[in-house]
């Protein structure tokens, strides 16, 4: 770091960086490319191939029904966020500004929820949804997703609200504004970066959610994540269809990578992704 790196060292570094890129991005690129390959080319392990959209046609048709799965994934993720963000914002504000009996235990309790293994939650949810006739519906998935998105969002938004100066709110209240008014016209606009950030992470974790979707849906409400497994048929794995679904699964992440990195660096590690 101090001594000026010599040419040999610079060369080794460049080589290592290339290796890292190959190791971490190569597999993703390979899967993405597979989506455009003729099955023959998949088997032949071709690097250069003539791209085709035939796999997308296969994926759109039964039994894969790509569009229906995209719709389900969007519906579940969207509904989860629409419910979770307002609920979390209210709670985050209250936890940040008011003293509760028990003090810090509330905030720590919110954080502790992140360590509950999904497999234990899934058992009673499955039993309850089964008797309520909610198995294989988006409602079941939204409820399950709220269990980890809400605490996560509270934790993130609270961090931002904590950093806002209280003086603004106090001044507004001296002028006669009520708490809710203050919340709506001062706190929410100022905490917007935090809410957006919670929205991005909430989107990523519920879009990527696999286990609840696997257990709580069967065919009507299955999401893209479960669809990845549908390419496993009796006749063997249909990898090129899996790759098409995989491409759709990873597509939003290509756009969100920068935002994700920025927020991860900002030091919001405490809540941790599942």
């Amino acid at each position: 770091m101090i001594a000026r790196p010599g040419p040999l060292e610079r060369f080794v570094r460049a080589l290592l960086i290339l290796l890292v890129l190959l190791l971490f991005l190569g597999p993703i690129a390979w899967v993405a490319a597979t989506a455009f390959k003729d099955p023959k080319d998949v088997y032949a392990l071709r690097l250069l191939f003539e791209p085709t959209l035939a796999n997308f046609e296969t994926a759109l048709a039964a039994p894969y029904e790509l569009l229906r799965r995209i719709r389900n994934s969007l519906l579940v993720t969207g509904s989860t966020l629409v419910i979770a963000l307002p609920v979390a914002t209210l709670a985050a504000y209250a936890l940040s500004r008011f003293r509760f009996p028990g003090g810090e235990a509330w905030s720590l309790g919110v954080l502790a929820t992140q360590f509950v293994p999904p497999v234990i939650v899934a058992i009673p949810l499955f039993v309850a949804f089964r008797s309520a006739g909610l198995l294989d519906t988006p409602v079941a998935l939204v409820l399950a997703n709220l269990s980890f998105v809400v605490p996560y969002a509270i934790w993130m938004i609270k961090g931002f609200v904590d950093a806002l100066p209280v003086e603004l709110e106090e001044a507004a209240m001296l002028d006669g504004a009520g708490r809710l008014r203050v919340l709506a016209s001062i706190v929410v606009p100022l905490a917007r970066p935090g809410i957006v950030c919670a929205g991005i992470f909430g989107f990523v974790v519920s879009w990527n959610e696999f286990f609840y979707a696997l257990v709580l849906t069967r065919d009507r409400a299955t999401t893209l994540q479960v669809g990845l497994m549908a390419a496993r048929t009796e006749r063997g794995d249909v990898w090129e269809v899996m790759a098409v679904m995989g491409l759709v699964v990873m597509l939003p992440m290509l756009f969100l990578a920068r935002a994700l990195q920025r927020h991860l660096v900002a030091g919001r590690f405490a809540g941790a992704l599942r």
């Binding site: 971490f24 991005l25 597999p27 993703i28 390979w30 899967v31 597979t34 990523v204 879009w207 990527n208 959610e209 696999f210 994540q225 479960v226 990845l228 497994m229 390419a231 794995d237 990898w239 899996m242 790759a243 995989g246 699964v249 990873m250 992440m253 290509l254 969100l256 990578a257 920068r258 994700l260 990195q261 991860l264």
Partner: peptide, 18 residues
Amino acid sequence: VLPFAMSPALVGVSWRFL
């Protein structure tokens, strides 16, 4: 950040393929 943002299911299925 891309590998990290991949869904666990996609990572598992992809490596089974690879």
